[in-house]
C-alpha cells in the first residue's frame, strides 16, 4: 500500500496477497500480540504499574463495597417490608363464631393479601418461650392477652398512607379494640436507605471518575517516558493507531488488575466481617448472612474496571501521541 509509488505493489516489493480470512486472522493475531506486549511492558517496568494498579484497586474497592452494602441493606429492607403488617387487637369478649366470621370478613376484604390469626393461647405460649417469664406467667389465673389478627395488605396498599387508611377502616369495626401499624419508623428507614443509596451512587461515580483520571495520568506519563520510541515509530511510518494500541491495551490491563484487587479485597473484607455479622445477627435472632459478589457481579466488576481503564487511556492517548513529533535531528 504505497501512497506515492503505484508501481511498488506491482514490482513485488510490497506485494501481499491476503484473503479476507487471512486479514481477519492477521487482525486478531496483531491485537493479541499487542495485548500480550502491553502485559510484557507492565512486567518489565513493574513499579509504577504496581502502584497504579494498587491505587486503582483501592479506588474500585470503595464503590464495590458500597454496592455490597447496598445489596445487603436491600435484602434486610425486604425482610422488613413484611413489617408493613397491621396488627388488629380484638375484643376479648367475642364468641368463637363471631371470631370466625370476623376473620372471614377481613380475609375477603379486597385490599387484603392474607391474614394470620394468633389466638391468645398461642400468643401466651410464645411469650412464655421467648420472654423467660414462664414461671411467673403460670401464676396468672386468666390469659391477659387478646386475640390478634395480623393483616397483610396487598402490595399496592402496603405503603405508608394507604396502609394507614386501611388501619382506620378496620378500627371502625366493632370487633376490633385497636389496631397498630408502625409506619413512621418504616418511612424513616426508607428515607435513610434512599439517602445512603444516593450518597453511595454519587461517591461511586466520583471514584469511577478518579479511576479514569488515574489511568489517564499514568498512561500519559508512560507515553512521555517513551517519547523517543514513539518518535522512531513515527519516523519509520507507524500510523497513530499503531502507536496508540499498546497504550490502550495497557489501560485495559490496569483496569483488569485493579478490578482483580478490588474483588480480592472485598472477599477478604467479607471474610473478616462475616464473623461479627453472624454474632450480631444471632443476637437479633435473625438468620441474616452477609452476601458477597456473585460470579456475574464479579465479571461485571472486572468488565467495568477494564472499561474505565480503557476510557482513561483513550482520553489521553490520542492527544498525547499527536503532541509527540520527531523533530530533533532527523
Amino acid at each position: 500500500m504505497s501512497l506515492l509509488f503505484k508501481q511498488r505493489g506491482a514490482a513485488g516489493a510490497n506485494q501481499r496477497k491476503l484473503g479476507l480470512f487471512a486479514k481477519v486472522i492477521a487482525f486478531f493475531v496483531g491485537n493479541i500480540r499487542h495485548w500480550l506486549a502491553a502485559l510484557g511492558d507492565i512486567w518489565r517496568d513493574p513499579i509504577p504499574s504496581i502502584l497504579t494498579v494498587a491505587v486503582l484497586g483501592v479506588s474500585l474497592t470503595l464503590p464495590s463495597i458500597m454496592y455490597v452494602v447496598a445489596k445487603n441493606a436491600q435484602s434486610v429492607e425486604q425482610h422488613w417490608q413484611s413489617a408493613a403488617e397491621i396488627s388488629l387487637f380484638l375484643h376479648t369478649d367475642l364468641s368463637e363464631k363471631q371470631l370466625q366470621t370476623f376473620i372471614k370478613q377481613v380475609e375477603l376484604h379486597p385490599k387484603v393479601e392474607k391474614v394470620v390469626f394468633v389466638s391468645n393461647e398461642q400468643a401466651l405460649s410464645e411469650f412464655e418461650q421467648l420472654s423467660g417469664f414462664g414461671d411467673a406467667l403460670s401464676l396468672l389465673d386468666s390469659n391477659p392477652l387478646p386475640n390478634v389478627l395480623i393483616v397483610v395488605p396487598l402490595a399496592d396498599y402496603a405503603f405508608a398512607s394507604p396502609a394507614a387508611d386501611l388501619l382506620t377502616e378496620f378500627e371502625q369495626m366493632r370487633e376490633v379494640e385497636f389496631g397498630k401499624l408502625d409506619i413512621e419508623w418504616l418511612r424513616r428507614l426508607n428515607a435513610v436507605l434512599n439517602l445512603i443509596k444516593d450518597t453511595m451512587g454519587s461517591l461511586g461515580l466520583l471514584l469511577c471518575i478518579s479511576v479514569v483520571l488515574i489511568v489517564g495520568n499514568t498512561i500519559r506519563l508512560s507515553i512521555i517516558n517513551r517519547k523517543e520510541e514513539i518518535e522512531v515509530l513515527k519516523l519509520v511510518g507507524a500510523t497513530d493507531g499503531f502507536i496508540q494500541r499498546p497504550f490502550l491495551f495497557t489501560g485495559l490491563w490496569y483496569g483488569f488488575f485493579g478490578g482483580l484487587i478490588a474483588w480480592l479485597s472485598i472477599e477478604l473484607m467479607l471474610y473478616y466481617l462475616s464473623g461479627s455479622i453472624v454474632t450480631i445477627a444471632d443476637l437479633y435472632q435473625s438468620d441474616f448472612r452477609l452476601a458477597g459478589l456473585s460470579v456475574s457481579e464479579m465479571i461485571n466488576l472486572l468488565l467495568m474496571s477494564m472499561g474505565l481503564g480503557l476510557s482513561g487511556s483513550y482520553l489521553v492517548v490520542r492527544k498525547q501521541i499527536l503532541l509527540i513529533e520527531p523533530d530533533s535531528s532527523i
Binding site: 504505497s2 501512497l3 500510523t239
Partner: peptide, 22 residues
Amino acid sequence: KQIPFVRRDIGMIFQNHRLLRD
C-alpha cells in the same frame, strides 16, 4: 493521516542511529 504511508516509502538514516535500546 497519510504521512506515515509516505514515510514507509522513504528509508531514513540518522547520525545518532535512533535505534530502540530495549
